[in-house]
Structures are given as C-alpha cells and as structure tokens.
Design a protein around this nucleic acid. Structure first.
Lengths: 109, 109
DNA sequence: CATATTAATCGCAATATTACGATTTATTTT
DNA sequence: AAAATAAATCGTAATATTGCGATTAATATG
C-alpha cells in the first residue's frame, strides 16, 4: 500500500517521527544550523549559501515551518526566517527525554 | 530529479540527516522505545507488539540496523535485537550538541 | 504606473518509502 | 531426514519526497 499507518501508534511516537522527518534531510539540517548560527536569516541568504534552486529551498523552508521548527516574517520584499524558540525548546526536551534519560543498560546480545 | 544532492553538504549534515531519517517513522520509534524499555527483544515480540506484518517489521529493523542504532544476534530459531550501545551514545552526543549547546538567542522575527 | 526584486506556488520527472503476501533461508525438534 | 518455527528477502502496488524551471504574488523603487 505504501502509506504509514499512523493510527496504530501513540501520539508521542507519531509526533517524534514527524519531527525527525523534518530534520531528515541534509539541506534542512544546513538551514537549521545556519539559523542557529546567524543573526540575519533572509531566505535569499540561504539560497546563495546552499547550492540549491530557490524553489527547492522554499520547499524545505515550508517543511520546517510545517513542523513548527522555524517561522518567517515578511520584511519588505524579503522574508526573514528564524528558529521558532517555543517549539524548538519543546522539541529539545522531548528529544532529551528520549536520548538522555534512557540509558542503555540491558544487553541481550 | 528526485535524488538528494548529498555531495553539496557537510558530512555532519549528511550524518545527522541519515540518523534522523532512521528515526523518522512511528514504527521505528516504537521499536526503539520498546528496545529501550524491555529486557527481552526478540523480533517476534515486536511483530506481535506492533500491528504490522512480519515482513514490514523486518524491513524497519533493517533500516535501524543500517543506521547502526540497533544490532541483532541469532539465538536458535529467533533473533534477539537490542540498541547498539556504542552508536547510540555517539548519536546521543551529536544530538545533544545540536539541541542543547545551541540555545536560540537571536530573534530576527 | 512600469519595472525590479524576492519568495511562494505549480507542474512535472526521477527516485525513495511503506506495506504486504509469498517465498526462501536457517535452525530446531521430532 | 522430515516437519516446524522464526526471520530475511523478493516482488509489487501505492504513495511520498526531491529537485528544478516556469509562473505567480507581493512589495519596493524609479
């Protein structure tokens, strides 16, 4: 069939999977890293920084926006993007609880 | 075209993207959570735990194995899976450095 | 108001993912 | 050696993703 059976999983599993999916592309990782690093974050800057077409970058920005990781505001002709602090911090604590609190202890193999 | 241009990104960006891709499915999140929680971790247990076909689970296990997140050892007729502690800890610190050390400070929007 | 600039959206082609049933492989038990 | 059990692999269909050029939409400038 080829479509994910979201209904059989917990909402946490689905939420985390969607979050990781948003980060599961090197271009989107590059955008996130750039936004974490830079003060200015115009869409055009990202287009010239990464070696992808403008329409492609725009699509990746949409993916990140749908996941709530970034937000953009119109500034004249340009659009300024940045990390959505609120969602980012939620994500941070969810990922932390997955990776940090659960230490691998039981080895069966 | 439809294929990711890995060559234009840094190895860290590609590495993290591949890691997140492995986690970007609720079934694989469920498997990981189960392996973190349980002592026993036979493939068959996962099949009956999640509501997916055996061949589907097997494919998801392969994805996680390719990403280095889990490993499996044959025990008689069954295969016992568990988190690959070594890779898991590497992943943990990479994800930590992405999320924890980089706090969002500059707001341009 | 016409033109330039920036970014979103559309349409398309290539490729990847997801899921399942059927089959195969490997091991254990009879 | 034959039968049973568990898991990997194969083949296939449905759907999703990636990327780009072309177009559209919105704002700014001459």
């Amino acid at each position: 069939m080829g479509l994910t059976k979201s209904e059989i999983f917990t909402s946490k599993q689905n939420r985390l999977a969607l979050l990781f999916k948003a980060l599961a592309h090197p271009a989107r990782m590059a955008i996130i890293q750039q936004l974490l690093k830079m003060d200015t974050c115009f869409c055009g800057d990202l287009v010239s920084e990464l070696g992808l077409a403008q329409s492609t970058i725009s699509q990746h920005l949409l993916e990140l926006k749908k996941a709530g990781l970034i937000k953009g505001t119109v500034e004249g002709v340009s659009v300024c993007y940045c990390i959505d602090e609120k969602t980012w911090n939620n994500v941070k604590s969810e990922v932390e609880s997955l990776f940090i609190s659960c230490s691998v202890k039981n080895k069966c193999c």
